[in-house]
Design a protein around this nucleic acid. Structure first.
Lengths: 261, 261
DNA sequence: ACACGCTGCGTACGTCATACACATCGAAGG
DNA sequence: CCTTCGATGTGTATGACGTACGCAGCGTGT
């Protein structure tokens, strides 16, 4: 209290003070700290150097602020991670969901989420800890539910379907990160280490089923038939095809004449 | 060198030295440090106090050794986490996989893995970073592949199916941890917070599809029809049913007469 | 003119993984 | 029996990290 009054009558003349203040303000010409800027910087760091490189200190330095300044906007590092996660999902497809058949729509949904995960692989290191109530999560959710509007499914079933496919996308991304694109269209790009590992760890008596599989020599061979026989579609991920076929089975059981596109 | 000779002719008489050595050996009556004991202690701590409580210091104290002693057996904390993860999976079902129909078998596979995750929820916080070459992972994999031995599927497809279902189990566990058993048979035990959150965050213009769904008031109502009409099966998780139906569709396309049990 | 609240800052603390040098001990080999 | 060696356990020290806390400066409303 008395300290401020001392400062106001300090040897520093008011002009000098104003000049310094202006300089300070210029330094504040950096666009001001905000949650958005913090999250965006964190995502940039994670994209470049991995999630482990995202420390409060590093993020602050990236923005030109002191470490503790971040806490005026984020609460905790865990909160920051949640924001990063949601940001990484990005926007759902621009295509209007109502303009698509349910099958194409759900494929687009899953593929879009998968791409988001591949673009920001570090999301896989952030555990799913909160219910999906964040903005981007909800936008994707809304998009998927819009695709399913007319399907003869209960609300609960639509929600489950959406969770099934988003979970599948996350799993595919994790599998891809682990094994190296085993399930991707171009089947050449296979991490041989996994197969070699299986080969040395198994034997006719040790994990015989795995052994038989890996010894077939065709573990990473895509069945030619797997190309969609609907016509012109490209090769689907195996699991995605199964899930959608299973959904279709339920739909036609409910409404035999329902269009299966 | 000279130091030891000084010790051997130190003021401490040989009897005393022997006595002290014996005492030391008694102290070593603790069963000796080993990878197994370290992992087991870590799992115990995680089960009791969560994964965050698992620090090298805490694990060492639990076993009565010094912190750094652990590094003679584990290499790094990340390695320890991988071991914990694999341990948490436990043993695959005791039931012989060949004694089961493929559908029952795959249900058992998924449910077993799901149970393992629910018993050790912290596995969800450990990212899947290595290809599944650890012992328990491979045992589960072998069990699932054994179930699928006679199915008319390519090796690649069997592997994909197994990954699809194990990933689904992990997702269900994550969803259960987040939302609170939404997809479980007893539909009473629902985390209302999620629904309430959706209700306040959405509106007719804001995320309309989600809004419509949550306003139906029947979001967490299980459709009565979802009880299996195959006969005596209990209510399946929705997603599991879809996946298996999709698999069945592929199977009957390959071999129309193949038994669908 | 002053008080208040908001934002940013600097210091300080406790925790963590882990590098490194050392001690102990049993086994091997002369 | 003495020496050597490799394996195992220990103690200390370091650097990074998240974050509690109190202060400073600015803008706004009285």
């Amino acid at each position: 209290m008395w300290y401020t009054s001392v400062v106001s009558s300090s040897p520093i003349p008011p002009e000098a003070r104003a000049a310094w203040a202006a300089q300070d303000r210029q330094r504040e010409a950096r666009p001001e700290l905000s949650l958005e800027r913090i999250v965006e910087a964190s995502v940039r760091i994670a994209d470049a150097d991995g999630l482990a490189a995202v420390s409060m200190a590093r993020v602050a330095k990236e923005l030109g602020f002191a470490t503790m300044a971040l806490y005026r906007h984020v609460g905790s590092k865990d909160a920051l991670l949640v924001h990063m996660q949601d940001t990484a999902y990005g926007e759902p497809p621009a295509t209007s969901p109502s303009s698509l058949g349910w099958r194409d729509g759900m494929v687009l949904f899953m593929r879009g989420l998968l791409e988001a995960h591949l673009k920001h692989p570090w999301v896989l290191e952030i555990p799913l800890s909160t219910p999906p109530l964040m903005p981007q999560s909800l936008k994707w959710m809304d998009w998927a539910l819009a695709v399913m509007t007319d399907l003869p499914l209960e609300p609960f079933e639509k929600l489950s379907t959406m969770l099934l496919l988003s979970g599948y996308a996350r799993n595919e991304a994790a599998t891809a990160a682990m094994i190296g694109d085993m399930a991707s269209p171009q089947n050449e790009n296979v991490d041989v280490d996994f197969e070699a590992g299986l080969r040395t760890l198994t034997g006719p008596d040790r994990l015989p089923a795995v052994h038989a599989l890996v010894m077939s020599g065709r573990l990473f061979e895509m069945p030619a038939e797997a190309t969609s026989d609907d016509g012109d579609e490209f090769i689907l991920d195996f699991g995605l095809g199964r899930i959608l076929d299973g959904l279709e089975a339920l739909i036609v059981k409910r409404k035999p004449n329902f269009p299966t596109v």
